[in-house]
Simulated scan of single mutants.
Amino acid sequence: MRRIHVILLGIFITGVLLGGIGTGIAFGEYSTMEYGGTVMLGEEYLVTGELIYEFEPVPGEKIAVNPINWGRTYGKSALEMDESLPMGTICYDVTYNSKLTIPNLYYWEEENPESVYAGETSEEGAYGENEGDAESSQISINEETVPVEEAAPEKENVPDEESVPEKTSVIVGYLEIHTNYIGSEFELLMKDKDNILQNLKQKKINSYETAYITDVKVRVNPDMMEYIEDRTMY
């Protein structure tokens, strides 16, 4: 719940206490109230739907599935394998409050894609320096060039193959879930006011949170992992 709504809710509950409920709740009785836990406002409006992103898999290219900020535990991936899905499909299963939000997928690209190596991710672009390396590795033959066998570099100048990470792919785009906010939190609060007042009469006080997006799972075909960089756990 955003800070302004927490403040408004606090003002509302304080006003109820000051004004009295039914026979009245005095400040002297406040210390006897029990904490009833967290109440999720708008749970009755939660629905689960699918968001589909489709693309043409290209060997050597990956799409990064970006971190998910709703309903996730940091350090745990949201990616699940589903053999029923076709290649080139990324499916998001999203549980959200249909009265307050509309989730959507957002895909974007960078001008300089990231190079992805076996065992690590490099911040250096896949193009530029790498292209220069490829160009300089070509051998041009002319009258002044010594024979290739004589021009072979000395052994100490040859990089150790085991020390050079193997470049497997390049990240060309990023996919993430966004949401458009609709409706009003205050409206949900007013619809639930009878329960709030009833709890106060019973000397119970709760904390209130608003349900927006409560859970996100991402499903892909297992063979798609060659074309996906999983970042959902971050």
Rank of each mutant, 00 (worst) to 15 (best):
E61H: 08
R3P: 12
A211I: 07
P153Q: 04
L85E: 03
A151T: 00
N130H: 08
F55R: 07
V220C: 04
I68Q: 08
G128M: 05
T232A: 01
Y227P: 03
E111D: 09
E229C: 05
I90K: 10
L17G: 02
G42M: 01
I63F: 04
L51Q: 11
E161Q: 14
E149D: 14
T210N: 10
N180P: 00
T210M: 12
S77G: 02
V47L: 04
T101N: 01
E120N: 06
F55L: 03
Y30E: 05
D93R: 15
D194P: 04
R2F: 10
I205Y: 07
V116P: 03
I90N: 06
G24F: 04
I177E: 01
D230T: 12
A118W: 09
P103E: 06
E150T: 10
Q138V: 14
Y107K: 15
E83Q: 10
L41A: 07
F27R: 11
I182M: 06
S31W: 01
E162W: 12
T23C: 06
E61N: 09
Y212S: 09
N69V: 00
E43T: 13
A134F: 11
R2D: 15
I52T: 06
Q198H: 12
K167Q: 15
P57K: 08
I4K: 14
L105H: 07
S184K: 13
K76C: 00
Y96S: 08
A134N: 05
Q198K: 15
E156C: 00
L18I: 15
C91S: 13
S137L: 13
A211V: 04
P103I: 03
I139D: 00
G10L: 08
K191N: 13
E123R: 11
E34D: 12
E54D: 04
E185D: 15
K62T: 05
E229R: 14
H178K: 15
S77T: 15
T101G: 00
I182D: 06
S115H: 03
A78L: 13
S31P: 00
